[in-house]
Design a binder for these strands. Structure first.
Lengths: 203, 203, 203, 203
DNA sequence: CATGAATGAGATTTCATTCAT
DNA sequence: CATGAATGAAATCTCATTCAT
């Protein structure tokens, strides 16, 4: 699905692709641990077990590694997109989404990575676009659930599905950041969050 | 109250204090324009019209300038704290708060600064604590309005005031970030936001 | 005696002189603890409890503080000069000198200071000259004892008093340095040293 | 023996090793001319004809260059170790050693370097250890000659070979320093020195 | 594809000293 | 005599990137 027209990968191509991933993953860990700007290209190469020069055979530069990571983030959204695409009561789907997305952001590293990318997104247009694109996709999926909820009479009719979808997602993100910073559990945050969202949607 | 016992500042001390502010403000602008890590100490000094060496007479290092800025951010919250402390209908106060806080965050530079500080807050404990302290103060003020709203029967009784206060503020922050990144107006975001919050609080 | 023609010091002059000493002593401790080059003028001022600017009212610069310290070192030699000037058996005087001079250099700080000054003496002529002058004075005194020893038939006649004096003093210095570096006691070193010197002088 | 199992050096590795030496030698000259602390890393790089950044590909820092130089100093002792290991009359060997070691220290640059290293040795443990190790090796070799001299009845039986070895070497070092500082010839110093040592060892 | 030496600009911070107050 | 802000050069070291091998 990702590349319907590509020729089959040779053994060498596969090895190369694996190297890319190794580097990308090493960078990911570095960025999470020390931040994008505090991470040097040398750190990434060392962590990936790759020579400094070779890293540049796989990526044009440090920035591009982050771009790849931001793009990779999109794939992380797949489970949530799937979940939101399922049929069934909007209320139920929403509840499950809240739970699982909050659960995803219960891992500090994912929150940190999000902040790191957000921070770069402001000044680097390509990162910004990727970030927005990822968001829009998730928002669209959630908005469609919202819409069904409205149509089914589960949610209030005055709700703007897309606005609400944005707000719900942002709410989880922002409170996940609070949880990380204040070192409180996401579980305890989630309770209040669900109450808040449920109330906002109800008829 | 802040310094009831301090001796009167000499002309020279005042000049020194002014220099500090000059440097701090120059740094503020640099950080907003180019980001904390992309800003060099030289840039700050140049912008402040101060020699590089002299900057270090006023601040121990670059990090400490950011700390001072983060502390300064607290003062920016005063108008909102005042507003929230006013008597009157909780609904009305809340509405005004949403409007004015959103208006504050309609200026991209304030959003960017918030992100920049948030990003540093993760790895620098002192910044983190300042950030949390600022937040808690605002949250407490908003929570007290919430509580009054509940007591007055304007808001639903099942609401947890503090949880809700956190969430409302995070909601504004996060959607202000979206507004900046997607280059949409905060005004348009605010409409949906108010609707969402109002609904979440209603009986 | 040091300054027969000077007018009596006013109270103020005395206070000033005391300040100078305070600074000089603070510098001394800094140089011993951290080395001349690793010590900043700020460190000295801080340690002396004096403002940075004021230090320059008392000394033209950092270098000159070291010069003063090197000059001060000369005064430290007075006890040994006195000892060497005493009448009595050369053998006996020499033995006492070896003991007390070695005892003086048993304090690591004095050895370290000597090294620090020696090191600067190479490239700074004024320090060099002071160092040499201090040495010559001590050597002359010791040489005169040697000479008496020869005349009295206690030491061998073939001895060159001045050469021997130089060598004896250098021997103590150098082995004191070894004691400091190898962290062995000067006492244990002294035993071998006395044996060696005694043998070298004997008829 | 030093690297019996090492793989053969590629042309490139050899070039790299040469660069290291170039840098080290440039540093050596800088340190001698201007002193360790007065020498900047830039000076070394410039003198070595190497870019500043590249220097750090070969050495972790300025300190480590000095460590390497101190280690190199050990190799300079090889001729003396060889000389001392030769069979023959202890008196004769000792005399030759005194001559050649004093001759070595007749070059002011070697004396200066020794002072520079000594000075650093006090506060930098790794330099200190290297210095001591170098010394011990030379002392051990000289002590063994002394011992033979005693056994052969050339030197007095009451002599402690190791103590004496230390003292003799320190004597040369310290008087070489005097020669440099007072700008007198090592040759003239050596005469008195030999007389002194000979007398100290004789039966 | 792989290596790591090479680059030189740039990073932050410290230096000894001066000078207006 | 006393202060500490001001200076700008210099300190050491890191940076992302290039390139010859």
């Amino acid at each position: 699905m990702s590349d319907g027209s590509s020729k089959p990968l040779s053994k060498r191509d596969r090895a190369t692709a694996r190297r890319r991933e190794t580097i990308r993953d090493a960078a990911l860990m570095c960025f999470i641990e020390n931040g994008y700007h505090q991470t040097g290209v040398r750190d990434i190469a060392k962590r990936a077990g790759v020579s400094l020069g070779n890293l540049y055979n796989h990526f044009p530069g440090k920035h591009d590694v982050l771009v790849e990571i931001a793009a990779l983030e999109r794939a992380e959204m797949n489970p949530f997109l799937d979940l939101l695409a399922r049929p069934g009561s909007a209320t139920r789907i929403l509840d499950r989404f809240l739970t699982s997305y909050a659960n995803y952001l219960a891992k500090p590293e994912d929150v940190i990575l999000t902040i790191e990318i957000s921070s770069e997104a402001i000044r680097k247009p390509d990162i910004g676009e990727l970030f927005i694109a990822n968001r829009e996709e998730l928002v669209a999926a959630l908005a469609s659930v919202m819409k069904r909820g409205i149509d089914d009479g589960e949610f209030r009719a005055s709700l703007d599905p897309e606005d609400a979808a944005h707000l719900v997602i942002e709410l989880i993100d922002a409170s996940a950041f609070r949880a990380v910073l204040s070192e409180i559990s996401m579980r305890s945050v989630l309770r209040g969050l669900k109450d808040f969202v449920t109330a906002a949607l109800r008829r």
